[in-house]
């Protein structure tokens, strides 16, 4: 940890140095952010707040506006209205100073395929204003951290998808940014690479890095995020911890796997009085929301028995984020969406 980042403007850097700032200003603070592309309002009044050292997940389907939010926060796009401050710097007015303190790793791994892994990191380091030797030292350090040392001298075009993502993330970390933006960091990765990347993100968090990540995967948000903001059609429609969001649905879900799927209508009718909402059936499993009452399972078994419905399995479970998402937006989070992420 001896590498020094040469600030572009030492005076400015001293004034804004986030780590020395005495304020308790949050790492990211967004108010009423609006951004339109032609007719499409990609961001329609977004408010966000991320305390220092926390991980916020923006969870939403394709086209929800997640990427647009990240692009505004990383100075790539100027908002039409609203304000956004990152480490106390305004994303529009202080864009230049802010770029010294943020890192972005995107869903399309932005590495130069013709350069080697090390060459990529040296280039990024030098564009941060580091001298060649310092950039090289930092590059080697990161390659070691990301288990890319063996491939350091190979052109990035020979890298696998997972290696590319790791290199992209390493490039985002060259200047040790206090705030890191990850736009769908694991989209398209195989399960093993995905798990490895999750562990890396957890390490970064443990080191005190503030992380804002976007994802359409509920398990990813569930595992990594302190706070989840559910985004749909350019607005944050719910926010809280994973548990808080699940609690919003209230109660638990009773799931009954039927011996004979054709008996579903009979089972639904038998169980309907137990819930305020009509039961639903999918793949031979009837499910319904039940308010936490004693004897729920006994009652369900009795009702199904009286109706003469055979049961393979029956149980209570807490709602998943899937259920939360479905009830909030009326559609499934990971549904295949023909629409391209427009922003």
């Amino acid at each position: 940890m001896t590498t020094t980042l040469v600030p572009n403007d030492p005076q400015e850097a001293a004034v804004h140095d986030f780590t020395d700032a005495p304020t308790d200003e949050p790492a990211i603070s967004v108010r009423g952010l609006v951004k339109s592309f032609g007719e499409v309002r990609a961001l329609d009044g977004v408010d966000l707040e991320v305390p220092r050292g926390a991980v916020l997940a923006l969870l939403g389907p394709n086209g929800a506006g997640k990427t647009t939010a990240v692009r505004v926060l990383t100075t790539l796009l100027e908002p039409d209205a609203g304000t956004a401050r990152v480490v106390g710097l305004d994303v529009v007015r202080d864009a230049r100073a802010l770029r010294e303190r943020i890192g972005l790793a995107g869903q399309y791994a932005a590495v130069d395929e013709n350069l080697t892994g090390l060459g990529n990191l040296i280039m990024v380091g030098r564009l941060y204003g580091m001298r060649r030797a310092a950039a090289r030292e930092r590059g080697l350090e990161l390659l070691a951290d990301f288990e890319l040392m063996d491939a350091a001298k190979r052109p990035a075009k020979t890298y696998s998808g997972g290696m590319r993502r790791r290199l992209d993330l390493a490039a985002a970390l060259v200047a040790r940014p206090p705030v890191l933006f990850l736009d769908e960091p694991t989209t398209g990765l195989d399960p093993r690479s995905r798990l490895a990347l999750w562990e890396t993100i957890e390490t970064l968090k443990a080191d005190g890095t503030t992380v804002l990540l976007t994802t359409q995967y509920l398990d990813e948000a569930d595992r990594l995020a302190d706070t989840i903001a559910v985004v749909d059609r350019g607005s944050v429609i719910a926010r809280g911890t994973s548990d808080e969001l699940k609690d919003r649905l209230g109660g638990e879900r009773l799931e009954v796997r039927l011996a004979d799927a054709t008996a579903a209508p009979i089972a639904e009718r038998a169980l309907a009085p137990m819930s305020e909402e009509p039961p639903t059936t999918q793949d031979g499993t009837v499910s319904l929301t039940v308010r936490g009452r004693d004897g729920t399972i006994v009652e369900a078994v009795r009702r199904l028995d009286e109706a003469g419905v055979g049961v393979l399995d029956l149980g209570l479970r807490r709602p998943t984020l899937d259920d939360v998402f479905l009830s909030l937006t009326g559609h499934v989070a990971e549904a295949a969406d023909d629409e391209e992420e427009t922003a």
């Binding site: 791994a109 932005a110 941060y128």
Partner: peptide, 13 residues
């Protein structure tokens, strides 16, 4: 097309 411009634009260069 490959997004490298985004990387450059987030750098203080």
């Amino acid at each position: 097309t490959k997004g490298l411009i985004d990387r450059f634009r987030t750098l203080p260069m």
